[in-house]
Nucleic acid binder design. Sequence first.
RNA 1: GCGCCCGUAGCUCAACGGACAGAGCAUCGGCCUUCUAAGCCGGUGGUUGCAGGUUCGAGUCCUGCCGGGCGCACCA
Length: 611
Amino acid sequence: MVPGVLSFPRGCPYNAPFSPPPSPASRPTQGNAVMRQTLTDLIRSALLQLQREGLLPADAPLEFKPDRPKEKQHGDFAVNAALVLAKPARMKPRDLAERIVAALPPGQRDVERCEIAGPGFINFFMTRDRMRRLIPEILTAGSQWGRSPAGAGRRVQVEFVSANPTGPMHVGHGRGAAMGDVIARLLAACGFQVEKEYYVNDAGAQVKVLGRSILLRYREGFGYPVAMPEECYPGDYVKDWAVTLRNRDGDRWLEASAHATDPSLEPPPEVVEFAIAQALDEIRRDLASLDIHFDSWFSERNLHEQGGIDQAVTLLAQRDLIYEGVLEPPKGKLPEDWEARPQTLFRATRFGDEVDRPLQKSDGSYTYFAADIAYHLNKAQRGFDALINVWGADHGGYVKRVQAALEALTGKTGLLDVKLVQMVNLTRGGKPVRMSKRAGTFVTLREVVEETGSDAVRFWFLTRAGTSQLDFDLELAVSRSYDNPVYYVQYAHARVHSLWRQLKEKGWDLPRETLPGADLSPLEQDEEMGLLRLLGRYPETVEGAALSHEPHHVTYYLLELAAAFHGYYNGCRILEEDSARRTARLALCDAVRQVIANGLALLGVSAPERM
RNA sequence: GCGCCCGUAGCUCAACGGACAGAGCAUCGGCCUUCUAAGCCGGUGGUUGCAGGUUCGAGUCCUGCCGGGCGCACCA
């Protein structure tokens, strides 16, 4: 039993391992990845040949990669081998490229041609037939198309949200929630075993303050005059919880409430317990409305009670990484109450941090950082191969020290990747929605989800890299217009369904299950090839987004695919008289539909059949 | 003062170290009979903040500046 873990309630559907497991794991199983592997093998074989001929030094590392050119004139794949190997070969890149091309094994049916271009790229053009074969591959794989075996079953933990259980979630929490959830889904789709965890800060002073706040509102409910101290939570939700407490317990806490204004007195544990439970209920409900469910809720208090912090500190002490010392004052202007005093410090500077970090407060109790060290040690002890944290950007200053502690305790570097998420600016019709707790214009995540829906919130929150601040327009997010990216992508999906409906109305029967076997040779327009090229990029887009922990790549891809599809639809009649062309085009459209559906599923956004 | 993030078209933002830096919005010019879609097609727009460096190749990596955001003993 792992200390601190409250529960492992729900399984993530994406956590299901591949069945059957890919074999061998290193070989790609899907169309474009197969193409890429084929090209890699081809080039490698040519390079080995050149090595045997003595053109390339035998010890030269054969590093190169097939890349996706941005320009379609540059083919379907571009290989940079000649550029990378020009120096060891002591040749001009273009000359070397010619020798590589000459050494390519003949008889490759899927490659139409290859040409040398630019500074020395070797561009490969796949045959139309190979491109068209993506369609049956996609339709046969269905919802599985785009999954990757890259993770090979490695265990990854994603910790995200972890909002303090002291009140409603705000919009920024929502962005972190969407980010973490989709990172988890992406990794699961790429063969990782993923666990989603919420760290519950239920041990600190702030939950006691919440407990006192509730007591005061509770007392107020009995008609006593109450002055809320500065540090207490003024929100209306506190009053609601106080009412709930009274309904449950009657006047049982009335006496205790008389002292609740005094910060030095502890509120009754039952009341604090109640407060945390209320807050977590609300948080869980908000997350559920975004279809976000955690595998575990990790209690900080539990960590304390189980001695996790003592354990971590002892471990650090055993490695001589702790000492009593005095920190130098911060440079520049001094904080008013700063005074030099001896503290228990962790030698974070040995692991790349700027200064050593205190583990104990002046009263001898542990700092939050000490608990964080213990928490991350606990994660490492649970045997994860990789850890991902999604934090608000205001916590950016803590990344190095936590990574330093983790390295100190595990001896491993790079175990933890912290994704920092910038703030969200709410706008309505382009005008900023001011958010101020004091002015009472604070907008909660719940309000935004209720107004715009889970789809809009999730998709929109993933339209930017986490490092960019994000504007969310409440008006645009619900508009049925092409300016609304959510609508734009979802409508592309619905449009294909609309085509099938119309097909039926026209009495042109076409059983879906015959599509994978359809004759696709009528597909030869540029737009059709362009769509195929895009479809082929989907699996590597998913894999790239997963491995880099950057979900917005998928969002951008879907926008691009939807744009290409809308353009195709506008310029080319799908349901035309010629049944061979009609069938081929419908097959292409259906492949687009499948890929959009898969991509939206990864984002946790619905794919409506009708809009 | 120190650290982290950011600086790309008028605006909001993309771009595993790759080719002539791309989208959307705005703007301008056309079209708007056609698989329901107040939409469609096309054009203009850039010294990637500045200056060096590494590299066959830099928006991307390194150094120094400039500008913006966040954080900065003991709070969480």
